[in-house]
Simulated scan of single mutants.
Amino acid sequence: MTAYIKSISSDVVLLPYTLGDSSKLKKEVYFEPAWIKMIQDNTVAILGWIQYEKVKWLQNNNPEVPGLVYKLAPMDEKMRKLDRVHKLWDGILECSNVIDVFTDDPIKTKSYDVDHFIPWSFVMNDELWNLMPMDSSLNSAKNNRLPKWDPFFRRFAENQYLLYEMIHDKEHIHKLFESCLRDNLHSIWAGQELYRKGNSKEEFFGILEKNMQPVYDSARRQGYEIWNR
């Protein structure tokens, strides 16, 4: 076998290494200088590829855990990017009343937070389709808990649909929406289905529910508490 490997390396293709003639634990491993240099020159890319393949395997085998890549290398909360989303909702509030999902009162400009419907600690992202304006005083009370799906999802979807209408009807809102794309809209389904022009309200609600409810249910199964608001 050792001779065969050597012949392949010399006559067919240069292999990364060949084996010596000693036996068992004394067997030598000879690395080819050309391969050593290539690996040294491309270490970052190779390690990145290994990490990528590892994450793919883990995600495929853990479909109920979203955002695994972020959980393997947790993102500092200070690095979260909600500023542009806040500006987007500021722009919407200048044009229309927005009803708070939890208080049923109009959101007050400059006294609201942008928060996640499904907790950030579970999804580990700041995707626009999971974000909502809410009363600042309630944000800490909600913390890492899930809102009750009924009735709060429909209220949440109403505000999302208001956002959707605004980004297609008002040019300055559309520009604010575009500024969010890099940091807050990575889900393919959201870009290609949810926020595409031409959805009816019923279609919009259906797309949002179809994609959010499995994530919500997964969080419930993994022990996230319901916020009894």
Rank of each mutant, 00 (worst) to 15 (best):
V13F: 11
L14G: 04
L14Q: 08
L14V: 08
L15R: 01
L15E: 01
L15Q: 10
P16C: 06
Y17W: 15
T18E: 12
L19V: 06
G20C: 05
G20V: 07
D21K: 12
D21T: 11
S22W: 06
S22D: 11
S22E: 08
S22K: 15
S22Q: 03
S23R: 14
L25A: 07
K27P: 01
K27V: 04
E28C: 04
V29S: 10
V29F: 12
Y30V: 07
Y30K: 02
Y30N: 02
F31M: 07
F31G: 00
F31H: 11
E32F: 04
P33Y: 00
A34I: 07
A34N: 09
W35H: 06
W35L: 09
I36R: 10
I36H: 07
I36A: 13
K37H: 09
M38C: 12
M38S: 13
I39F: 05
D41L: 03
N42M: 03
N42I: 08
T43M: 13
I46K: 08
L47R: 10
L47E: 09
L47I: 14
G48D: 05
W49D: 09
W49P: 01
W49A: 15
I50Q: 06
I50G: 02
Q51H: 10
Y52D: 02
Y52A: 04
E53T: 15
E53K: 14
K54F: 04
K54T: 04
K56F: 10
K56S: 05
K56I: 10
W57D: 02
W57V: 02
L58S: 00
L58N: 02
Q59G: 03
N61V: 06
N61Q: 05
N62W: 02
P63L: 00
P63R: 06
P63N: 00
E64L: 12
